[in-house]
Design a protein around this nucleic acid. Sequence first.
DNA 1: AAACTGAACGCAAACGCTTGCGCAACAACG
DNA 2: CGTTGTTGCGCAAGCGTTTGCGTTCAGTTT
Lengths: 340, 340
Amino acid sequence: MTVSITDVARAAGVSASTVSRALRGRPGVSEEVRAQIAAVAAQLGYIASRSASSLASGRTYTIGVVAPYIGRWFFGTVLDAAEQVFSAAGYDVLLYNLGSPDARKRFFTSLPVRKRVDAVLSLLIPDPAETAALRSLGVPLAGTVGGARDGFTVVGIDDRAGAESAVRHLVNLGHRRIGMISGASGPLQWTTPIDRRQAYLDVLAEAGIEHDPALEADGGYTVEGGERAMTALLATSRPPTAVFAQSDEMAMGAMRALRRHRLTVPDDVSVVGFDDHELAEVVGLTTVSQPVAGQGAEAARLLLRQLDEPDAERPADKVRMPIRLVLRETTAPPNPRGPQ
Amino acid sequence: MTVSITDVARAAGVSASTVSRALRGRPGVSEEVRAQIAAVAAQLGYIASRSASSLASGRTYTIGVVAPYIGRWFFGTVLDAAEQVFSAAGYDVLLYNLGSPDARKRFFTSLPVRKRVDAVLSLLIPDPAETAALRSLGVPLAGTVGGARDGFTVVGIDDRAGAESAVRHLVNLGHRRIGMISGASGPLQWTTPIDRRQAYLDVLAEAGIEHDPALEADGGYTVEGGERAMTALLATSRPPTAVFAQSDEMAMGAMRALRRHRLTVPDDVSVVGFDDHELAEVVGLTTVSQPVAGQGAEAARLLLRQLDEPDAERPADKVRMPIRLVLRETTAPPNPRGPQ
DNA sequence: AAACTGAACGCAAACGCTTGCGCAACAACG
DNA sequence: CGTTGTTGCGCAAGCGTTTGCGTTCAGTTT
């Protein structure tokens, strides 16, 4: 049916071993024979069977990527960038979309990547048991987003610094009542919400502003959650004049809530987000920009490097990408008349 | 190192063949032996090698998914849904992100999925040569989005009907100067822009409105393109009082352009989009909603069905998902004073 | 009681490649 | 002109499964 390596060997008048070596650029084949084999292979349309070659060699030329919600902008963008790097290097990517808890459980118990991948890139934070499962694969591991894990090369950003710049911006504009829309950390050691919150507290303290727990609300990192959180903040006795949302999605939800309350941004309330979502510019959202695609690409590159030089020293187990506060139209000095 | 099928066989006191049959639920194994083997396998942590089993059986239990920009909301969402269906059915997915032309060329020339997948789902429209390449794989094929292709099971929506409902809505509101922001079809037989445009023309004609070519602008299906297109429309001698954007991204770009021109939506200009992007609700965009995730899931299901019953008659080569006009806040009757 | 069933299981041959090793052939050396 | 290297290539043994076929054995049939 399909042409196999022995077909090529026969047609080229050599042995299968020579074809194998020739096509993969291994030494032990003269240049002329190599060229001849390449020509024959091309003419026959020969493509090596991956299963056979990985069975024989142990190498799969495949990377496993596990990610939570790939439909969401952040993860989709990271995945997109990582995939480009992998495929440019000749690797295929096996995608595991672990958004739902049972998909996640299914993955970690049956571990379908075993013996199928040369490395895995994780876009989610595995818990200790999951980490152990991944490590048991015996392949290089890398991840994006915060949360240091043993055996992982992780690339992320300085969440503290980013959040500090956002909150400090609000302080510098003269705001004193600054709310925060955060996301619970949940059961996992996903440190981002914690770090961003700490930065918020630090900046308030450094500005001599007393922290008011009533100004914090949980937005669960979704648009709807952000809307609910903002609504809750507006219902307090003294609503904030500015809010720092830990993600752009939540910021957009907050803006929606404000609009529903007939409040204008930034005249009544300033809003600053985090991420620099592709649509942040569209809605004029001031936010702290992080290189999302950049993180995916960088993590992918680091993984490939580990594959190329397995015993090379790993200089940085944790690389931090730059962040930058992007000023747009949703922040302004507090309105002297106060909200509404 | 890792435990193989012979290890399990030895531990269970049976042959490897029996282990293989037992674990895969094949007949020819008594229930007690099967249970015993299952227990031993679980206890040893045995997981069959995919490469070996697919080499031997020809089955890979893997689906290839080729998609253009997986970072974009639409494709990310489709992919997300499809992946869930596949993985729930025990299939892995090999992802090929073919956004850039050379990634695309690379894919279709080296065809890395050959002998690696049991089926392929295409989220892009392959040109004739690419279609031939895919067909040469000899596996079931399915695709989303319009464009009928031989050998493909395709699921999509009725673009004409959707666009008609959007434009008709504007007409019913009383608009007579209705612009359209479209996207060029490009070299591929991507019929969506064509269909949506035809619907626009049809509705205008049916309403007795003369078509003005100056009211059409190309937005390339991106936010920036939509902004440029709207800017161009506003620069004409008689700007439209309403615009139909062929995608929500372009609609958002248009809204941004309008805001920059200090025009308000919908008082000065009405805007209606297409897709029901996850953020359409956030910006209050009136749009025609299509089941994006639904299309991905449905295409995946149809593919699995073909895999299960290879020679079943395929009742519908082309399935159409329902659409629905969602009224929000960006459309209103024309302002009697006219724009600006 | 002989012959015939299935059912349950083992044997061994694929599947298509990779790779350590061996063996020519030939060049370069003392 | 023997020796020692190189270089280029073929042999054959895997890699871990699946599966067609053969064997055994308990349980029907005549």
